[in-house]
Amino acid sequence: MNALPGWLRRHVAALRALLVFTAVLGVLYPLAITAAAQVPGLKDHADGSHVSVDGRQVGSELIGQPFTGKDGNPLRQYFQGRPSAAGDGYDPTATSASNLGPEDIIDKGDEQSLLSMVCTRSKEIGELNGVDGSRPYCTKGGVGAVLSVQPGRVISVNEPCPAAAPFIAEYKGVKVECAPAGLDPRAGKIVPVRGSAPAEPAVPADAVTASGSGLDPHISVAYAELQARRVAEMRGVPVRTVRKLVGGATTGRALGFMGQPVVNVLQLNIALDKAAPYRG
């Protein structure tokens, strides 16, 4: 039999390689990884760390979720997680951060800057939990306290007209105006105003900023403590009972020294429903 032409031998060799690699990497390797994932200690994580209550899946230990009513407002009887920028919130198919940085301080129409977003969240969380939600560089109305200083004119760029009096009456002897329609703040010098808010706000940073993944299921111990009294009042139990449950849902530093202790919100809310059911 005559030898195959060189060009055909190359195609046959390529086909053999394709079949071998398909079998090894497309079949054998996934089966081996799947089998290894079923080893005790790994199985729960490999299967998605689902959390079930009375045989019904209620969430995941690794992915946060909202605890809101049909109107989208926070349910006061539950602990709330940190904000999420993943899709419409905690969407594992759209995991991402907001891509906004610390210099994003000017609102653009209906699109809030990172600063105004933080200010709005802090104000709302403060009102929800009965504490002062003010923070540096935020107006009392919950937007970024930023001025555009122009020759003979000063404008509060994040407070559109018509509005009540701007957050500050005057700046260096010039009356401050609200932002007119079509304002281009770049026409002046941008000046953030710190204001009189405390250096350590009552509302922690993780309560007003999203995580890098947008899926973080944890909150800081400080944010859990902020919410404890509100949750205790809604459930009609002593605040010490709620704080004890917070402790039970708290994980220490990774490897004993990395990061800070955190509280798993889903686990905490499940424990609450068992130990102190909401009667509302």
Rank of each mutant, 00 (worst) to 15 (best):
I105H: 03
N158Q: 08
A94F: 02
S60N: 08
L245A: 01
Y78Q: 09
A163P: 15
A94S: 07
A13G: 09
G109V: 03
V118G: 11
A163V: 09
V131R: 06
R279E: 08
P66W: 02
N269C: 01
P185R: 12
E233D: 15
V208C: 11
D44F: 12
F21H: 02
L75C: 08
E127G: 04
T34C: 04
V146Q: 03
T209G: 05
A3P: 06
V143I: 07
V174C: 11
L215T: 01
A13D: 12
V262N: 08
G236H: 06
K140W: 05
F167L: 01
Q57K: 13
P40E: 03
R229P: 15
S96W: 09
T34V: 15
A3G: 10
G81N: 02
D91I: 07
I105S: 00
A94T: 04
N264L: 04
A276R: 00
P185V: 01
L226N: 11
E177K: 14
I270D: 07
D44C: 11
P204V: 07
F257E: 00
G252Q: 01
L100K: 15
D273K: 05
G109P: 14
A145D: 04
V58D: 06
A210T: 08
S49F: 07
S60V: 09
S98Y: 02
M117K: 15
P5Q: 03
A37R: 13
R56D: 01
G55E: 00
G256F: 08
K172A: 13
A14G: 14
C178F: 00
L4R: 12
D273C: 12
C138D: 06
I106V: 14
L128T: 07
G72C: 10
V58H: 12
L75Y: 06
L25V: 06
K244W: 00
P74C: 03
G188H: 14
C119H: 07
D107Y: 03
V143H: 01
I190N: 09
G130L: 12
L128I: 10
H50W: 15
L100C: 02
T251G: 12
M258A: 15
G259C: 10
F21L: 13
V20N: 14
A23N: 07
G280L: 03
S60F: 06
D184P: 14
V154L: 07
V24N: 06
I270A: 08
S113L: 04
P83E: 06
Q65N: 00
G101A: 12
M234D: 12
G59W: 02
Q260D: 09
I105Q: 08
K172R: 15
L114W: 03
A23D: 06
L215M: 01
R121Q: 13
Y223C: 10
A181Q: 14
V239E: 07
S98G: 05
